[in-house]
Simulated assay, not measured.
Amino acid sequence: MKAITVVPGDPSSVATAEVPDLPPDDRTLLVEGELLGICGTDADIVEDGYGSPPPGEERLLLGHESLGVVREAPRGSGFSPGDRVAGIVRRPDPVPCGPCGEGEWDFCLNGRYTERGIKELHGYGSQLWRLEPEFAVPVDPSLGDCGVLVEPASVLAKAWEQTERILARASLRPRTALITGAGPIGLFGAMMGVQRGLDVHVLDRNDTGPKPDLVRQLGATYHTGEVTELPLRPDVVIECTGHGPLVFGLSEILPPASVLCLTGIASGSKEVSVDADEVNKMLVLDNSVVFGTVNAARRHYEQAVRALAEADRTWLERLITRRVPMDGYAEALHKGPQDVKVVVDLRS
């Protein structure tokens, strides 16, 4: 079968090649890959050496945003041939730590977790892959190819879940949400904010391309420019860029009892002058919370499936702006001005 592999950190090594067929395994699902989403993490693996192949191997089979069709399923697994599934990315550490033992591997304490297509486990970028039933998420058939969006949406499902847990500390109810960044992660953050009945605003640096219209079609408001010039003080901020100066700029517009959730990480190192004492005073006196979130547990994938099924199908389809064959993976790592989500068609 064909698979997309790389030596992490060597862009010239990206290749679609024949790999050995999967051995029989009556404990796992045999899945025929359909689509594979590409995100910034994949570019970091290919170009910067982030991630690692399985121990003792040189190459990593890429891909963590998956969609496939079950071809074989163990009896009693809860799955049948023909079911569409997405594969969970992270696996608990072998010890396991407390959170991993409770199925919350997204809160792993010792860092010994593994991740499909990222850290010490081969990914989903192949024509066939095997998947443990407990790490397979059923995808609503009505989603069609938009089921490939489940994994990135799960990150925002977790972000909103954790944000709402913090908001529940008081009787205040949020009315306004700001999402910074209008990439796929930001758009899912906005979609889920609208689904919660909030007045949603999205800030991005681009004023052309498909993003402004995608935000407006949600019923949200699109902004460009400096965050400190926005005509609002949001109760909730979901930060999706990882841009350090922006993160600290947000502290200037937060009202009392607000929540700022950080989901993004940016490469490089940007210096910014910050009055640390003033930021500390603001957080204390205003009862504000800033927290980070990464990855997702199984329940967040399930939340993502429900949120996507509730969304407008036509809107979701507009997020997938480009499809490439397996041989086009290296080119697809670099988005064009009209791209939102680029996917690899494993069937072509």
Rank of each mutant, 00 (worst) to 15 (best):
M1D: 11
P11G: 14
S12P: 00
S12D: 12
V14W: 13
V14R: 14
V19F: 14
L22F: 10
L22C: 07
P23V: 12
P24T: 09
G33W: 08
L36M: 15
A43G: 05
D48I: 00
G49A: 08
L67E: 06
L67C: 05
V69I: 13
E72A: 12
P74I: 06
R75E: 15
G82K: 06
I88P: 00
V95N: 07
C97G: 04
C97T: 06
C100H: 08
G103A: 12
E104V: 03
Y113C: 04
G117M: 10
L128G: 03
R130T: 14
L143E: 00
V148K: 01
V150K: 04
S154F: 05
A157R: 06
W160N: 05
E161M: 04
T163F: 03
R165T: 03
R169Q: 02
A170P: 00
P174D: 01
R175E: 14
A177F: 02
T180M: 11
T180L: 07
G181S: 12
F188V: 09
G189N: 10
G193V: 01
Q195E: 00
D199W: 08
L203Y: 12
N206K: 12
D207V: 07
L218Y: 07
T224G: 09
G225M: 06
E226A: 15
V236L: 13
V236M: 08
I238S: 09
E239L: 11
S251A: 14
E252A: 15
P255Y: 10
P256T: 13
A257T: 03
V259F: 07
V259I: 08
L260W: 06
L262R: 05
I265C: 07
I265Q: 14
S273D: 11
N287K: 03
G292P: 02
G292R: 02
A297N: 07
R298Q: 10
H300K: 09
Y301T: 06
Y301M: 09
R306L: 10
L308D: 01
L316N: 00
E317I: 00
Y329A: 00
L333C: 11
G336L: 05
Q338H: 06
D339Q: 07
D339Y: 04
D345S: 09
